[in-house]
Write a protein that binds this DNA or RNA. Structure first.
Lengths: 194, 194
DNA sequence: AGATATACTTGCCAAATGACAAGAAATATG
DNA sequence: CATATTTCTTGTCATTTGGCAAGTATATCT
């Protein structure tokens, strides 16, 4: 497994010389997570920042009635991170699970902090990481308020069609804030009228 | 209006010499927002970080049916900020409104960035600010999933009783994710059984 | 391929929530 | 202080959504 994709990602995120980018990439460890295995378990502290080179994951928690609720999907060439637990060193309420076999590159909390000290430019990387996480969460929160489930479904379908290739409809349903029964009805109406 | 409260807040957030804290505090401008006026309007870019010295505010947006939905409450001695718009320089989907006459100290985006350059310790302040915002948003998002409205009501009542002194019940209702009708019923059941 | 398990759709019914309206209470205004 | 306005509660009714179960389709395993 070579680190080309990771190197690409770093250079795309941060304007640093190739040499520095290589040094940063070298701090990452190879990570393999088999289908259905966990990258992070609820009740534990997240200790790894992960660049997902290949595969597909989801985060989930449980609602007040004990139903499994998907809170996020992660696709390849993107970051997998439960930022709140990772940065605050608190136990996570969410579990992150591989939905297909996954490979990627992980950076521990300690190594990330060492990079902050040894590579000054990397601090900007940290700041950008936080802002990105915050913006993504905010957008999702707002979309749950100012869009109907049907609209969120269409958005997801248009923008992230690959999710439909990997995730089960009940995972997508709970991500959209409805039951699988309701999603079924949304899909029926959508294929008729939409 | 003196800046003692602000100075206090800064020194509590950041281990810096009094002189440095004073210098930071000097960058803030006095801000007065009268009851019902806006600190931030939806559709504009947030340009101010605000330390609320006195008063009470709320943030709100509209749902798909056009209903006003409260997304946050802000109490005195705390920060008022729409982080996503402020840091990304994008238009805000939320409006932040004073529910009582408010006074505080604001710092513009430019001045904040200048502080990052002129006061190295301040960068840690920025990082901590982002993490706090992220954690708060995450906690709220999760509580909307894994607690019932009744439980969120009790939590809010126990932890933030002053909100009930200032906010209208319909604002609290939408913040909890229910209509004012439902909140009325929750309160009735709560005063009977709880 | 055949058998078994899992996932998806659909209909029916129940429960929860919202919409609306009327009255009571609280607050603001002249 | 009296009136007007706004907010809160509560009842009735309608709508939405979920729960459940049966049937269908799809995927998995040997």
């Amino acid at each position: 497994m070579d680190k080309e994709l990771l190197l690409n990602f770093i250079q795309h995120s941060l304007p640093v010389p190739t040499q520095t980018a290589s040094y940063i990439a070298d701090q990452f460890d190879n990570k393999v997570i088999l289908k259905n295995d966990y990258f992070l378990e609820a009740g534990t502290v997240s200790n790894d920042y992960l660049f997902l080179a290949d595969g597909f994951m989801r985060a989930f928690t449980y609602d007040a009635d004990g139903n499994d609720v998907t809170t996020a999907f992660y696709t390849k060439n993107r970051i997998v991170l439960e930022a709140s637990s990772f940065f605050m060193r608190t136990v996570s309420a969410e579990t992150i699970q591989a939905l297909t076999d996954c490979t990627g590159f992980s950076l521990s909390f300690d190594k990330l902090n060492r990079l902050f000290h040894s590579v000054p430019e990397f601090r900007e990387f940290g700041r950008a990481m936080l802002v990105r996480q915050l913006v993504a969460l905010k957008q999702r929160t707002l979309s749950m308020i100012n869009k109907k489930a049907e609209e969120r479904y269409v958005d997801l379908f248009e923008s992230n069609r690959d999710i439909f290739q990997h995730a089960q409809l009940r995972h997508i349903a709970s991500y959209l804030g409805v039951t699988d029964t309701s999603l079924s009805r949304i899909r029926r109406d959508f294929s008729k009228n939409g």
